[in-house]
Write a protein that binds this DNA or RNA. Structure first.
Length: 488
DNA sequence: GTAGGGTTAG
């Protein structure tokens, strides 16, 4: 194609062919913008103007590019929304997709900015992009995790007013959201009210049973299952696997094993999920040998382990045996042609950190990039163990990388871990760093606990930094995290 | 984003 315009093009996305610029030579041109560069430009933009300028430096915005960027700056909510709005207003050739709206709605709702959330919903509707059942799943999930489950149910029941009909799908989704946030009882009540109207199916029952299992209420889950059978519905393999996991989760190892034998007796086709549940369940209970035995036996039974099965075994070897044996299994899985995923690496890295092999852990973090990208959990584990081992500089180094080249921004946990570590050495510099981290996290839409604010504040005062303490107080009052009756 | 197995400490 047109080679001369290549330096201007994004390598990953299509751009229209532009005539080469007459004012610059090929040699002095900027290198092509890659995703990391674009993302960093957006993150660095101080105001709407510089953001707009950045947006114009990209010749063609595509829905795919926008979604990728929103995903990457997820943990910088306010900036992500600014980017979404700026693009919406300034680019005539680009129109936000339904998926981009869903992303933005998710971010706004996570920031508990419900006004912005619903403005986006109506904008979405006026452009005939939705809201879709997925949009409502996102919104209700955010309300539930903000502790507003009642409101979430009301929103579900008013879906049709937004041009989105409720059905069995969306009903099951709501039940699942409630159950996953440990509100099985509420989900069950709702289920009993509406099961006739939505024609609840075996999936609805499975969701409720799993909800009780998550609360370690296996007997309640069994009741729900009896109800399912009484209503003439047929349990599925998923049903059995939910109950199997339920027994192990609630520490009923013997009952779990008996249930598994019963599954065999009833000629239920036991699958890789059932076996993985056993491998993990026995291991967590400290029965590592049993765990290994199940692992070996499943192959004999004609069921091949999955990456998740390997992850389970590797994890329990790290926890209950030793990391060296876990690494043997890790090598074995590679030899057999499995591709480890982020969970595999996270488990191994955590195991190495726990065994105080921090440098090897960091080596594995680099090795990880051959198969997948490190995720937030990877960084948090390494940072946590660096801090615990007193290597605070190393922790800060990893943290800095996250804000630079890495495609993974710090989250609430990252900030909490690091701020906590800034009190260990009890010096003024660390306290100042803690203060800066606190300001930065608020800037990125995370809400620190009152405890964190007060701790940093006290630390700054004790180390004689009244000036920065005042700044913290300002931020604290902006967040509504000041103690009762407190006045600036 | 209608359900089940691996990452979250001890």
């Amino acid at each position: 194609m047109n080679q001369s315009s290549k330096p201007f093009k994004l390598t990953i996305f299509k751009t229209p062919q532009k005539p080469p610029s007459t004012t610059t030579t090929t040699f002095s041109r900027q290198p092509p913008l890659d995703l990391t560069t674009i993302t960093n430009l957006i993150l660095k933009a101080e105001n709407q103007d510089s953001l707009t300028q950045t947006l114009h430096s990209i010749s063609e915005w595509t829905p795919h590019l926008v979604q990728t960027i929103l995903k990457r700056i997820w943990n910088h909510g306010p900036k992500a929304l600014l980017f979404f709005d700026a693009l919406d207003m300034n680019h005539h050739s680009y129109r936000h997709s339904a998926a981009a709206f869903d992303h933005a709605i998710d971010i706004a709702a996570r920031l508990q900015d419900y006004k912005a959330t619903w403005t986006l919903v109506s904008k979405m509707r006026s452009r005939k992009l939705g809201p879709t059942p997925k949009t409502f799943a996102i919104i209700t999930e955010r309300y539930v995790s903000a502790g507003k489950a009642d409101k979430a149910v009301k929103i579900f029941l008013s879906m049709h007013e937004h041009g989105c009909q409720q059905d069995l799908h969306s009903f099951n989704t709501l039940l699942d959201i409630l159950c996953k946030s440990k509100r099985a009882e509420m989900a069950y009540k709702l289920f009993k009210i509406f099961r006739g109207r939505f024609r609840a199916d075996v999936i609805s029952y499975n969701i409720i049973a799993n909800g009780f299992c998550l609360k370690k209420q296996t007997p309640r889950a069994m009741e729900v299952m009896r109800e399912l059978v009484d209503r003439g519905l047929e349990p599925t393999l998923t049903t059995y696997n939910i109950l199997l996991k339920g027994f192990f989760r609630s520490g009923q190892i013997k009952e779990g094993w008996e249930f598994f034998m019963e599954m065999k007796k009833r000629k239920i086709e036991i699958d890789v999920v059932s076996y993985t549940t056993l491998v993990h369940g026995f291991g967590i209970a400290g029965e590592v040998e049993k765990s290994r035995k199940v692992f070996d036996e499943m192959i004999g039974a004609g069921v091949l382990p999955s990456v998740a099965t390997y992850n389970a075994l590797i994890q329990i070897l790290c926890k209950k045996d030793c990391v060296e044996n876990a690494l043997l299994v890790f090598d074995e899985m590679l030899k057999k042609g499995y591709v480890p995923n982020a969970t595999t690496y996270n488990v191994v890295i955590r195991g190495l950190c726990h065994a105080e092999k921090l440098d090897t852990a960091i080596e594995y973090m680099d090795k990880m990039r051959q198969d997948c990208e490190p995720v937030i959990q990877t960084f948090n584990v390494v940072i946590r163990y660096c801090c615990d081992g007193g290597e605070i500089e190393k922790a800060l180094e990893v943290f800095e990388k996250m804000n630079g080249g890495e495609n993974c921004l710090p989250n609430l946990d990252t900030y909490n871990i690091l701020i906590g570590a800034m009190f260990v050495r009890k010096n003024a510099d660390d306290l100042l760093t803690a203060g800066k981290l606190l300001v930065e996290m608020v800037d990125r839409g995370f809400l620190p606990r009152k405890f964190t604010f007060n701790r940093v504040l006290n630390g700054l005062m004790l180390t004689g930094n009244q000036g920065f303490a005042k700044e913290i107080l300002r931020v604290q009052s902006k967040c509504g995290r000041l103690p009762r009756n407190f006045r600036l």
